[in-house]
Each structure stands twice: as structure tokens, then as C-alpha cells.
Amino acid sequence: MTEVSAELLDRALVEESAKKSGLVWVSAGAGGDRAVWHVWHEGAVVVVGEGAEQPLHGWAQGDTVTVTVRSKDTWGRLLAWPARVEELSPGGEAWTAAVVELKAKRLNSPDFETVTDRWARESRVLRFVPTGGSSQRPGALPAESGAAAPVPTPATTRQPIPAALPRLLFGRGRKRRRP
């Protein structure tokens, strides 16, 4: 396979995986991965946040982040790629086009008719534009899971159930008297 066709295939994989997933993880260094809902619009992952929407964790214009997409079938990591953050200005042509797509995908919005006005006042719309090929993809995934370790706790659910519980729940062991 030529380098150009491999690059086109990789770009297509990035686009298709982002279109099919309603949730991506965005990582910017030591802050860890953050899950955000998004839409794929005009070659980038687009998110809306702050105000009454999801937190955007301080991502700003020009930042470099890593976007990770999960598989819709297995929910495991499928693909990761580097991206540049672009902030869209409220009211601009690009902002308006992106917000139309976001509004269509926004579930359970309490103010569906006026949500775009609210977003213009109190939220930010960011684009995560792919800047290179995928760093992780099928056949080239890291060995570690990436999952956070559970917090140590003395709580447990691995103790035997009380001996009387089945009798209490299912009435076993009781003899019924006939009238």
C-alpha cells in the first residue's frame, strides 16, 4: 500500500469512528482523559461546553490534545489521534454551522428552542481538528488498558449472605397449616 493511500485510509478511519461514536475521550497531558459528547462536523470533532453544558477542562485555542474513540461494538479503545484545539466565535459562520449540528444531537435539552442563544451567551464551542495520523489503531494498540485503578476501600461485597435470607425472601422452610 502506498503512503498516500495509507494516509487516506487512516483519515477515513478517523472520520468514520468519530461519526459513529457519540462520546470521545480527550486528553491534554497530566489532566487525564475526559469524556465528552460531540458531533463530527466538517473534518473535526466539535463539542459544546461550559455554562450549563459539559465541562471543557481548560482546553483553549491552539492546545494540542489526543482524541480517543471507542468501538461501538466492544466499547474498548479503537483509535486515538492528535488534534489541535480551535475555539469558534459565537455568531460566526463556522460557529452557526457547528451549533446546528450540535443542537440536533443534544439529548434532553431543557430549552431546545433557545439553546443556541444560551450557548452563545454562556458556553464555548471547540473543534478538535486531526493534525496527523492515528497513534493508536487496530493492530497497534498499547498493551496497558488505560483504565484508572479502583480507589482502595475497606468496603466489600464478597461476604456470604446471611443463612436466614433465603427463608425470608422465598418463604422456604415454613410449613403451611391447612385450615
Score class of each variant (00 low, 15 high):
R176A: 01
P138Q: 10
S17N: 13
W40K: 01
A28I: 12
G31F: 14
S71T: 05
L88W: 07
P166T: 14
S123C: 08
P138E: 06
E53G: 06
W95R: 06
R118I: 15
P162D: 04
H38N: 06
L169A: 13
P150L: 01
P55R: 02
D10Y: 11
H57Q: 10
W81F: 15
R167P: 02
E113A: 14
R174P: 03
P130Y: 08
P179W: 11
S145C: 02
A52I: 05
E53A: 06
S27W: 15
T74P: 00
R127K: 07
F128T: 00
L102Y: 08
L169Q: 15
V129D: 10
S123H: 11
K175E: 06
T156W: 14
H41T: 01
K19A: 12
S109Y: 07
T68P: 13
R172L: 06
F112R: 02
D10V: 10
L126R: 03
G91T: 05
G51R: 05
L78S: 09
L165S: 08
T153E: 01
L9I: 02
L13S: 13
M1I: 01
S109G: 09
A35H: 08
V4S: 14
L56M: 08
V24N: 06
G91K: 02
A60L: 08
Q136I: 04
A30I: 11
P142W: 02
T68G: 05
R121A: 13
H41Q: 05
R121T: 03
P138W: 08
A44H: 00
S145D: 03
A140L: 00
D10P: 07
E42F: 04
L23S: 09
A18P: 07
G43S: 07
A30F: 15
F112M: 10
R178G: 03
R11Y: 12
L56G: 04
G49T: 14
Q54R: 00
W40T: 06
E53F: 10
P138C: 14
V14K: 00
T68Q: 11
A94Q: 14
T116M: 10
D117S: 11
W25S: 15
P142L: 00
W25A: 14
A98Q: 00
A98E: 00
T153H: 02
K105T: 08
R177W: 05
T131Q: 04
R178A: 07
W95G: 03
D33C: 10
R124I: 01
P160S: 04
R106Q: 08
W59T: 00
V67H: 08
L23R: 06
V14T: 09
L126D: 01
S5Q: 15
V100D: 13
A147E: 07
S135E: 07
Q136L: 01
P179H: 05
S89V: 13
R84M: 01
K20G: 15
F112I: 14
A35Q: 09
K72T: 12
E15H: 14
E42L: 02
P160E: 03
V100Y: 03
P142Q: 03
A30W: 12
T66M: 09
G76P: 00
S21H: 11
A52R: 07
D33K: 12
T96A: 08
E53T: 11
A147S: 09
Q159R: 14
A12M: 11
